[in-house]
Design a protein around this nucleic acid. Structure first.
Lengths: 281, 281
DNA sequence: GTAATAGTGTCTTTCAGACAGTATAGG
DNA sequence: CCTATACTGTCTGAAAGACACTATTAC
């Protein structure tokens, strides 16, 4: 790999080897690296995020994003994120296959962790409705916690996990509230130009179910008729299975046709959000 | 595992303090964190990237992205990126003010650095035409190296820095070629929905100059008339200075009006790239 | 029956892109 | 003169959003 032409090939290889042999990794002030995962799912048409309750300090007892230290020398960042997601929640690797996982960004303020300088690489996951998680080794509890859409959902004084958590209740550990907020922004944006909304659904779904994904994550009602036509007009977004749902909705209506995810990776043209005025300026 | 989710408030603070006092950061296998900056600029209407030639191993003599280790406990990631950009290139902090800097992503394959597991947080910078850089302490040389737009520019066998470099010549150190490629993708995309193309220009510019930024980074000619109308129609993209360029182009034509950057942070509606077919599927 | 939904047709407005046309500068 | 450019006007087609309408199901 070190193809060189400046010093002679042999010279440079040799000196590089010498240097590597004398290299001491512990000479550097230590920095730790963690991965934290913002895993989103829909349960009963409500957006939920996966949180764990920290078993040990710092922030013991606080709710936090699932995550942990990267195993130095042993894994990629993507692998670490997948491992943490599996470990801390009991989601097995088969179910992980149906989960979309992508890097969100890195957070490295020196004081974000009281122990030492910890740099966290955040990941964003879109999951179909998964079983209730199992708490892993670092967590006293793990649960899908509802996010308030536009309006907070859970009351502030119940015993369950939805109270005292970040989204509807008390703040999250570290800077996880910031990470969660940026994850939600990213998620809302991803729905515009990718078909990832289908990652929240099962292998077969109706256009109405797909629409309710958009409505819950964007936090606004969409026009059913126009949405329907738009989805079918974007090449590769969904493809028909030919089948029809066995039951209609609880309020009646015709049985909807079923679709599965198409082969497009980008929506073209995109499915833009309704105008949020002159939002950011 | 130290369970517990209902110690009293005082208990918890106390045990957390004890734990912190006994905490030994060196217990972890060391991981290093670097920041690497993909700094882009336009010189004579050609896209250039800032590269340094590595003074020491590994990859001694190779061209690489400017960057370096994060100073543990002393700086944020953004600060580290700005510092490295300034240090390794002699760009002073005043000039840095006119540079757009944003996080691109993190790269952490265990073997990407032969020394140890090094996780690199990559940054993307858009700069106006800056003076030739000064090599910093870690670099034997630093230079703005032309990128081939769509077609590579520099011949492979000249003495200057543009040969034997990554973009037009030999591969870059580490996985920097991958980082550079993703940076260019991001840059092309950023021009669509943000006004950051103006970050490549001086405080006052003509619509034609702005168009040439788009053309060089997107690698395709744009329709002058339609581009002109589009830019002026997007609210907050540019605002008129009232002034007119003192000279016309070298090939004649009327003197163009001058504009400065507007106050929009997002272009709405966006300035979409001409159809690249069904690109990614 | 009523009410709510699935899916389609149509109209208006907006916008991108193609093209033409006028005025202004350099050679 | 000729040519290239700055900028504007106009047309066409694509697409979004509003609205209306039919057909089908749960209750």
């Amino acid at each position: 790999m070190p193809t060189q032409d400046q010093p002679s090939q042999a010279d440079q290889s040799q000196s590089e080897q010498d240097w590597l042999a004398a290299y001491d990794p512990r000479a550097f002030t230590p920095v730790a690296v963690t991965v934290d995962v913002v895993a989103l799912t829909l349960r009963q048409d409500r957006l939920h995020v996966l949180l764990v309750r920290r078993a040990g300090p710092p922030f013991q007892g606080c709710w936090a994003l699932p995550g942990g230290f990267v195993r130095a020398g042993k894994e990629d960042l993507d692998q670490a994120a997948a491992r943490e997601l599996a470990e801390e929640t009991g989601v097995d690797t088969a179910a992980l296959r149906r989960v979309h996982l992508e890097q969100l960004g890195s957070y490295g303020a020196p004081a974000r962790d009281p122990r030492m300088h910890v740099i966290s690489v955040a990941y964003l996951a879109f999951a179909p409705d998964l079983p209730d998680p199992q708490a892993g080794t670092d967590a006293a509890a793990a649960a899908w916690v509802p996010l308030g859409g536009t309006a907070p959902a859970a009351g502030p004084h119940r015993g369950g996990p939805s109270s005292r958590s970040g989204p509807a209740g008390h703040p999250l550990a570290f800077d996880h509230a910031v990470i969660l907020a940026e994850a939600l922004d990213r998620a809302r944006s991803k729905l515009e130009y990718t078909p990832l909304a289908t990652a929240f659904l099962g292998p077969e779904f109706t256009i109405s179910e797909l629409r309710s994904v958009y409505e819950e994550i964007w936090g606004e009602k969409l026009h059913a008729g126009n949405f329907h036509r738009k989805v079918l007009s974007v090449p590769g977004f969904v493809e028909s299975t030919g089948a029809t749902a066995t039951k209609a909705g609880s309020k009646g209506g015709p049985r909807a046709r079923l679709y599965r995810t198409g082969d497009a990776r980008l929506l073209h043209p995109a499915l833009l959000r309704p105008d949020r005025e002159e939002s950011v300026r």
